[in-house]
Design a protein around this nucleic acid. Structure first.
Lengths: 101, 101
DNA sequence: TGAAAATATGAATATGTGTTCATATATCAA
DNA sequence: TTGATATATGAACACATATTCATATTTTCA
């Protein structure tokens, strides 16, 4: 078993909490395909720009996404491959459960 | 890419949200080793029985754990292997990040 | 420089959620 | 059945958090 103390478990729950919001998970899924600018995220998902910016800040602070400036646009990308992997692991579980019904 | 509509993404975020609480993630980790009764969970983690019961209900409703009665004790176990797998995927990410620092 | 475009941020609000405390329910043992 | 043990549940409370609205910041271009 890996080394897991209370602190690590707390960080782990914090990490999972980031995925525990519909808006954020939709953004993550979108970024799994390719980088997207803030307004494009908003347009694509049908969300207000402010909502997207607020949630991007949470994702950024948690190191799940990283910004890149291009002119006056900001493109966001997933920080590493783990993010998509975790998304897919969860998704597989969900779809598996659904099938069972 | 797998089939993901809005509903599925909502369920996915709901699923991850369950992992997004320290108390619940601690319970999950404990159950990864073997079945444990409610009071044993409380004693082991230093939590009140009520707290554990409340969180177990959330885990049960989300089909993350399943109860088994044995006398007047209730033993809880993880519902399937996916749960531990997701826990470990997240943990690997956390430990990986920590190393990077 | 000034206006427009793109994004970020702060305050306010409403809603969700975890814990606490008290109590109910269920099972066993005598 | 009665008391004790084990667990579940409900209400109340405090706190976290997502969205909205207004506005600030940054960059580009004329």
């Amino acid at each position: 078993m890996q080394n897991v103390n209370l602190d690590t478990l707390f960080e782990l729950s914090e990490f999972f909490r980031i995925f525990g919001d519909t808006t954020r998970i939709r953004i993550i899924q979108l970024l799994m395909e390719h980088d997207v600018s803030v307004n494009d995220i908003a347009d694509t998902l049908g969300l207000e720009q402010s909502v997207v910016s607020h949630q991007l800040r949470i994702l950024r602070t948690a190191n799940l996404v990283k910004p890149r400036r291009e002119g006056r646009k900001m493109f966001y990308a997933l920080d590493d491959e783990h993010i998509g992997e975790i998304f897919n692991t969860g998704l597989t579980h969900i779809l598996h459960k659904k099938k069972g019904k």
